[in-house]
Design a protein around this nucleic acid. Structure first.
Length: 405
DNA sequence: AGTCCACAGGAAGGGCAGGCGA
DNA sequence: TCGCCTGCCCTTCCTGTGGACT
């Protein structure tokens, strides 16, 4: 018998067959309940195979409705048939939500260039130089380049829609190549907010992804279970629970998969060979806690200090009797933030900047901040902490470690 | 109807780290 | 090496504003 501390892990019976199948990034051989949408998208892109330029296309749909996976599936199918026919097509996928990678105009063009095999510095070059390099590169390749921009709404909210115009405009100047944009977004109203100039130059097609219902979600899960888990290791009640919980959250398949995978991990850790409803309940809690704490840990220190200040103000106000006295306003948060900075020897930011940080925390759904008027009391933001219970406890613990010695 | 509060949030510019070309 | 450029984060300055109060 080996005495290696990991040998026990290796000897344990396995509940998973292939855990990768249970992640949202896994692209299965067949996408269930999205046949129509896939058909629509491939119809838009298919002309490229006959040497025509495909239209730009925007894919709309809420979180976890299969937009990304369908787009990637179509991309992989397109790539394989085009290589069979020896046609040159290049498809680049970029997630615009990736912080420090694709969240500004400069970074998105830099990322596209990297995908085309050209190294560019993180800073220092004028953006127009980057554009030029990109178009030269595309022209040199001499083919249709399909750019898939996932979560494009995040980028547009941050830097505007001008960059879309730049991409489309350049098509008029290229002789050998063409750029087609596939925008993927959770924001169903995105198109209405486009600049008129962008709207007309894009002249894009639209595909809408509707949320899955519980039956469809269960179907999807069953398929993944057969690929990802060993036989007879997932109880039917567990599957139903995953599907039901995810259906409640606007038919989010990603959520359903996460629940199932984490429930499996829970069972494995407890050395149980069957995943049950209880494991799903535990998984639900764990996912929420992990998601929020990871987000907060990834924030810059000043942002964490602002959040800590909000939590402390909320705690102080807890003892107030009336509901109106329990409300949190920017002024209180800033005052408290200053004292946290003083205690920790941090140089405090200005109220203007803190106001922006509050806005960013709002974007992350950690707080909800609404601009209100208190009449003579002035205009301010009313802030509500959106995290509660175990999650709040965990987050507070982390922030206390950080800001109280 | 006018005043006034406490900010929101836009605009401009400074400082910094980093790249480019001469 | 140096001057000049960039993006990013931040400050400073400023105007705008909803609604309670006078």
């Amino acid at each position: 018998m080996s005495s290696n501390i990991f040998s026990q892990y290796l000897q344990k019976e396995n509940i998973f067959k292939n855990k990768n199948c249970l992640t949202a990034s896994f692209v299965p051989g067949k996408i269930r309940h999205r046949e129509q949408e896939i058909q629509q998208l491939s119809a838009v892109l298919a002309p490229v195979l006959k040497g025509y330029y495909p239209n730009n296309v925007f894919i709309y749909g809420t979180c976890g409705t299969g937009k990304t996976i369908s787009a990637r599936f179509v991309a992989s199918q397109l790539m394989s048939i085009s290589s069979e026919n020896k046609q040159k097509i290049k498809i680049i996928y970029v997630n615009c939500k990736m912080k420090k990678i694709a969240d500004t105009e400069y970074r998105i063009v830099a990322q596209l260039l990297k995908e085309l095999g050209e190294h560019v510095p993180d800073t220092g070059l004028p953006t127009n130089v980057l554009y030029r390099k990109f178009f030269e590169r595309v022209e040199k390749i001499g083919c249709t380049v399909i750019i898939m921009l996932d979560e494009i709404d995040t980028l547009i909210k941050k830097v505007g829609d001008e960059f879309l115009y730049n991409f489309t405009r350049i098509n008029q100047e290229m002789k050998n190549s063409h750029i087609t944009i596939v925008g993927i977004t959770n924001d169903l109203t995105l198109r209405n907010n486009f600049d008129l100039r962008v709207k007309s130059s894009l002249s894009e097609e639209e595909i809408l992804f509707k949320p899955y219902n519980a039956t469809q979600l269960k179907d999807i899960l069953m398929e993944r279970v057969s690929q990802g888990f060993m036989p007879n290791t997932v109880d039917d009640t567990a599957l139903n629970k995953c599907a039901a919980l995810a259906a409640q959250e606007h038919g989010d398949a990603r959520r359903a998969l996460d629940l199932l995978r984490v429930a499996g991990e829970m069972a494995e850790r407890m050395a149980v060979m069957v995943v049950t409803e209880n494991h799903v309940d535990m998984a639900e809690q764990k996912i929420d806690i992990d998601r929020v704490t990871e987000t907060i840990k990834a924030q810059p220190m000043q942002s964490q200090a602002v959040l800590y200040s909000i939590i402390k103000v909320a705690e102080k106000l807890k003892s107030q009797k009336t509901w109106t006295d329990k409300r949190i306003f920017t002024g209180d948060v800033f005052e408290n933030y200053i004292s946290i900075c003083e205690k920790n020897g941090i140089k405090p930011l200005t109220q203007r900047r803190v106001s922006d940080l509050i806005g960013e925390l709002d974007m992350l759904s950690i707080i909800a901040a609404k601009v209100i008027s208190k009449g003579r009391g002035g205009r301010t933001r009313e802030i509500i902490l959106m995290i509660t219970g175990n999650i709040l406890e965990r987050v507070t613990g982390f922030l206390i470690d950080r800001f109280e010695e």
